[in-house]
């Protein structure tokens, strides 16, 4: 199956520091890819590279990048995809809406821009979109300013804006971190449903592995500027090859089942202090010959990809 979005060898640097060091991942049509990893792993940077929304100081380099067969390396191609082909759901919904315009105005302006609609038509479509993100009184919300709405409501509006251009891919960067815990699950489920309903694909960046298990088809685990493990949700949860992914998942599941989680010792290295070989080596329980001096090899076991010298074997669960 050919991928909708395929990123190969993505490297991003800021001020001489390597932030991303060869990210490989792909999103297939109709699937939702979960992207997980500790803070600073480069999840947001990856998403922003795809939309050409990196800070001005950043340098970007792809080995290859395609979207629905189109070459995505020229920045222009990525810029033009914003809104039209790739929708984006932000992390802080309230701050992401322009405070001086009514949200309805922002939504219909987006529709007019992306879909060449007239005023009337855009308003009708906007109300329809608000309804489709399960807002019960779209007329009132349409007339509201962002500061008059709750965080959850703002996020629904942001999702509506992300859907406005009928994109093929929706990227959501920690869409629920700022929200009330009680509605986090609801918003995520809504997002999942909308993506499926519209035959779109999704990339969901999150810290919440429980959510990933519920919503995502495949998972990419990032560490220190790389995707270290990529596979179906079942594969990653049952038998992740990479020790880091394996430990991450086991912590999450032992939390769920009430067991005592064991932390991963040590801390995430800063972009300047990463080892050239395996960046995880100083914290790894399986570190052995080669780990500190040679790049870990790419392992493909039945479609699950990992970069590791000593991958965790099936059945051998180091808890």
């Amino acid at each position: 199956m050919s991928a909708l979005l395929e990123v190969r060898g993505l490297e991003v640097g800021i001020g001489g520091l390597p932030i991303l060091r060869g990210v490989d991942m792909e999103v297939r049509p109709g699937e939702i890819l979960g992207v997980v990893g500790e803070t600073g792993a480069g999840k947001s940077m990856t998403a922003r590279s795809v939309l050409d929304l990196l800070p001005a100081a950043a340098t970007v380099d792809f080995a290859s990048c395609t979207f629905a067969g189109q070459d995505f390396i020229p920045p222009k191609a990525r810029q033009e995809a914003r809104g039209h082909r790739i929708g984006f759901v932000p992390q802080r919904p309230r701050g992401s809406l322009n405070p001086v315009f009514r949200v309805g105005n922002q939504l219909s302006a987006t529709l007019r821009r992306l879909r060449d609609m007239g005023r009337r038509e855009a308003k009708d479509e906007a109300l329809g979109l608000l309804r489709s993100v399960r807002i019960t009184d779209p007329e009132r919300v349409y007339r509201s300013f962002p500061h008059e709405l709750s965080g959850g409501m703002c996020q629904r509006v942001c999702i509506a804006i992300a859907l406005a251009g009928e994109p093929d891919l929706i990227i959501a960067d920690e869409p629920t971190t700022g929200l009330d815990v009680t509605i986090q699950a609801e918003i995520l489920r809504l997002l999942g449903e909308l993506i499926t309903e519209r035959n779109a694909a999704g990339m969901l960046i999150t810290h919440d592995l429980g959510v990933v298990a519920d919503v995502c088809d495949r998972v990419a685990v990032m560490y220190a500027g790389r995707v270290v493990n990529l596979g179906t949700t079942t594969e990653i949860y049952r038998e992740a090859l990479h020790p880091y992914a394996n430990r991450l998942v086991s912590i999450a599941t032992s939390l769920d089942s009430g067991g005592t989680p064991r932390e991963i010792p040590g801390r995430v290295p800063n972009p300047g202090d990463r080892l050239a070989a395996c960046a995880f080596a100083p914290r790894c329980f399986r570190a052995g010959p080669g780990c500190f001096d040679a790049e870990p090899p790419r392992i493909d076991r039945g479609g699950q990809i990992a970069f590791c010298h000593h991958p965790v074997n099936a059945g051998e669960v180091p808890r």
Partner: peptide
């Protein structure tokens, strides 16, 4: 954030 989001939405 709203500039970033505006950009992401194609503005």
């Amino acid at each position: 954030d709203y500039i970033a989001f505006g950009r992401a939405a194609g503005l």
